[in-house]
């Protein structure tokens, strides 16, 4: 009997230990430990873009966690996100004109809502609203600003189309910007291979506002930065006649390929004439022959 009793006690201990371990895993190492402790009040904030913000993401003031995101929903009838923040009752004196911003922790980390204090004497109340918000900024937009490659022309005034032939368009694609003096004036409407002439026919849609482009201007495929996207740059000529809808730009310069450039650089000293037949000549009078 005593033997049997020790089984029972040992087995009971084992079961208790197992459940204790389960309770430990569930409460100490998981998101349950992160749940709101104590009473909280709810504040609304509306954002144009919440990026990767998730429910239960932290709300921080000066980097200190004061609450969490309770719910995220689309505001009915408007393209803005309504984010409900549950903030701990201990931090009840947040000025009503504080700014709620969606931040990213580190370059690739999770997103959280940061509140920057305003100067108002009034405090935001339960069910109140933080009117001033700053949305999450997509990485692409920030990089675009940084590299200056983004920003297409606003296509308000309509556009006219001209064509240009390139022996090589590189990675130019539909929608790539067309720039003059670095300013976007239109975009690439189509890129097609021309079977008869063995080159690429690119249609450029240029904004109607820019109708003073000489018809002997040259079109070149450039790369923004070292590894940026490619765009069509227009270098104005001197002709008194202007480009019209349906015209073809005669002078073109194809995309430089990094391999060709390196090749040119490497073989520069040893007779530039031979072995360079594959490289694209810088300026091709494509339509002349």
């Amino acid at each position: 009997m005593s033997q049997r009793k020790s089984y029972a006690v040992g087995t009971g201990l084992f079961i208790v230990l197992g459940f204790a371990a389960l309770a430990y895993l569930a409460t100490q190492t998981s998101s349950v430990a992160n749940r709101q402790q104590g009473a909280s009040y709810t504040v609304d904030a509306q954002f144009e873009n919440i990026g990767q913000l998730k429910e239960r993401a932290p709300v921080k003031i000066a980097g200190v966690r004061v609450g969490q995101v309770q719910a995220i929903a689309l505001e009915p009838g408007k393209p803005v996100a309504d984010v409900k923040l549950a903030i701990d009752k201990r931090y009840a004196d947040i000025p009503a004109d504080s700014v709620a911003t969606i931040f990213t922790s580190g370059l690739l980390g999770d997103q959280y809502v940061g509140i920057e204090y305003g100067h108002s004497k009034n405090h935001v109340a339960d069910g109140g609203k933080l009117a001033l918000t700053r949305s999450s900024e997509p990485l692409e937009e920030m990089l675009g600003k940084f590299f200056g490659a983004g920003g297409a022309a606003d296509n308000i005034g309509g556009s006219y189309r001209v064509t240009a032939r390139f022996s090589n368009v590189g990675t130019l694609s539909v929608g790539s910007p067309v720039k003059m003096a670095g300013v976007p004036i239109g975009q690439v409407a189509s890129v097609q291979a021309e079977p008869a002439k063995l080159d690429a026919l690119v249609t450029l849609a240029i904004d109607n506002r820019y109708d003073q482009i000489p018809d002997d201007s040259a079109a070149a495929v450039f790369t923004s930065g070292l590894i940026g996207s490619q765009y069509v740059a227009i270098q104005p000529g001197g002709s008194p006649d202007m480009l019209k809808n349906g015209d073809e730009m005669i002078l073109t310069q194809s995309a430089m390929q990094l391999e060709d450039l390196i090749g040119k650089f490497l073989v520069n000293g040893s007779g530039s004439g031979d072995g360079k037949q594959g490289a694209n000549p810088p300026t091709t009078p494509a339509g002349k022959h």
Partner: peptide
Amino acid sequence: NMTATVDVWQDI
């Protein structure tokens, strides 16, 4: 980091 990432239903 652990408590922020581990989910009770999904993981445990």
